[in-house]
Amino acid sequence: MTAGRTRTIASPLMAVAFATIAACSPGTVGVEAARSDRIPTTTSAEPVDPPDDSPPPDDTLPSDDTLPSDDSEAQLPPSSEPEVPLTQDEIDELVAELTAGGFCDADDVRDEGIVTAMHFVVQGRLQAPCYVDQPGEGDEPADVVVDDDPRLVAAWESLVAVTPNELVSDISLLAGFEPCSTCDTLAFVTILDEDSTFFLLAVDVVAGEDDPDELRLTMMHELSHVFTQRSGEQLDVSALGAAGCDTFYNGNGCFTDDSYIWAWIQEFWPPEIRDTLPADGTVGTEDEGVDRCELDAGYTGSYAARHPEEDFAETFSAYVYDVEVDPALGAKFAFFDRFPEFASIRERARDLGFAGTESNFDGCG
């Protein structure tokens, strides 16, 4: 992932609005999805019981008598600050201040190729482009973009068509790029502010147009890295290291007791595997992922087997779009079924005819 430069929030409006348009945590800086991450296998198995609401110590899993009933609702954690809708004048003022503050900067994406367009996202809604590549600016995009990049807009619309606003609104900036000759990143997320609340999602518009199925999977993968790491709700970013973390430290913070990722880790990443992961929270090596993948068919591929967060993200994208996977992934699919906010995304995808989306997950086992 591209490491973004941080900006300072100067005005009162910007400070208040950041809580509204980007109430999320930094995610895992360095998390990205390459085109080579995936290939198909077979279908899911029967569901398993949900995790305990109060996670046990690292070396145990929840007991059956502490599990919530099937009709209990596992909703998104409430935001510490209720969302206050902004008026259009406030949105316009905010966008102007963000632009003046250097948040719409093509240099944050340019390492991956030619930046075609950038848009702020306010309360889950795409705003007019704050940057559009123009002829004569030194870049030479394959398709000259005059007023906007329709490929980028189409990519965004494919995401919001199935995703509820409370999840997608954590993204604050969207960018499109045409990749350099040696670049193979289809999409990535990064943070741009000092408070770790402002997320940039960047998309390879060329590859996305060539393979819409893979684009949908990758954008859902990246989105999961955002909503699973909301500062305070999902991740305690004040944690200084793994030593002071009783759950799991990912390099940017410590997952909260009731976070999605900690529940996932307790159920699918036992201590004997967690103890082999890098202590600084970074993703394991390619060889480590391959080794785990060869021993366990319960991963979508070797990339997922490298780290719990990648496992969650890859499996979540497969779940949403009903990708054909190995039956060993049935328990992981059932995990998502227990959360209404996730099941609703899958239902929307099915309603739009995306069930059975083709992928290039390489499979395991």
Score class of each variant (00 low, 15 high):
residue 207 A to W: 06
residue 207 A to S: 10
residue 209 E to S: 15
residue 211 D to G: 01
residue 212 P to C: 04
residue 214 E to F: 04
residue 215 L to T: 00
residue 217 L to S: 04
residue 219 M to S: 05
residue 220 M to T: 13
residue 221 H to T: 10
residue 221 H to S: 04
residue 223 L to A: 06
residue 224 S to Q: 10
residue 225 H to Y: 09
residue 225 H to D: 03
residue 227 F to Y: 15
residue 232 G to H: 05
residue 234 Q to Y: 08
residue 234 Q to I: 01
residue 235 L to G: 07
residue 236 D to V: 00
residue 238 S to R: 14
residue 241 G to L: 10
residue 242 A to I: 14
residue 242 A to Y: 11
residue 243 A to K: 09
residue 243 A to H: 07
residue 246 D to G: 01
residue 246 D to T: 11
residue 248 F to H: 13
residue 251 G to A: 06
residue 251 G to I: 07
residue 252 N to M: 15
residue 254 C to P: 07
residue 255 F to P: 00
residue 255 F to G: 00
residue 258 D to H: 10
residue 261 I to F: 01
residue 262 W to E: 06
residue 263 A to G: 02
residue 264 W to I: 00
residue 264 W to P: 00
residue 267 E to V: 05
residue 268 F to P: 02
residue 269 W to Y: 04
residue 271 P to Y: 09
residue 271 P to M: 06
residue 272 E to N: 11
residue 273 I to H: 14
residue 273 I to A: 12
residue 273 I to F: 10
residue 274 R to S: 08
residue 276 T to S: 14
residue 276 T to E: 15
residue 277 L to K: 12
residue 280 D to A: 12
residue 281 G to W: 07
residue 283 V to G: 02
residue 283 V to F: 00
residue 283 V to Q: 08
residue 284 G to A: 14
residue 284 G to T: 12
residue 284 G to L: 04
residue 286 E to M: 10
residue 287 D to L: 13
residue 288 E to S: 15
residue 289 G to R: 05
residue 291 D to F: 11
residue 291 D to K: 11
residue 292 R to P: 02
residue 295 L to R: 14
residue 295 L to H: 10
residue 295 L to D: 15
residue 297 A to Y: 00
